[in-house]
């Protein structure tokens, strides 16, 4: 999937993946896609919750070699 910006959240624990996702989105424009890579198991549910509450759609997510990859579109 194409993306405009990548956030490396590897090794970070709650709440950093979420807070840093929000910070990354702040620097982006509407319609752009952010790729987030996290190793925090809790981030799977938290990213979905973040997407739902902020209205930034989670386009896709996958697990690759024990890492969680999210594609979020800025609303």
């Amino acid at each position: 999937m194409n993306f405009d910006k990548e956030l490396n959240a590897r090794g970070l624990s709650c709440p950093l993946p979420i807070v840093k996702t929000k910070k990354s989105l702040n620097d982006m424009t509407s319609g752009q896609v952010l790729k987030v890579i996290s190793t925090d198991t809790g981030s799977v549910k938290d990213m979905a919750a973040f997407a739902e509450q902020t209205g930034n759609p989670l386009l896709a997510q996958e697990e690759v070699n024990g890492e969680f990859v999210f594609y979020m579109k800025k609303k």
């Binding site: 709650c14 709440p15 979420i18 807070v19 996702t21 929000k22 973040f50 509450q53 902020t54």
Partner: peptide, 11 residues
Amino acid sequence: FILASTAAALG
């Protein structure tokens, strides 16, 4: 601090 930073991120 965790709850405050997270809530702020959620708007």
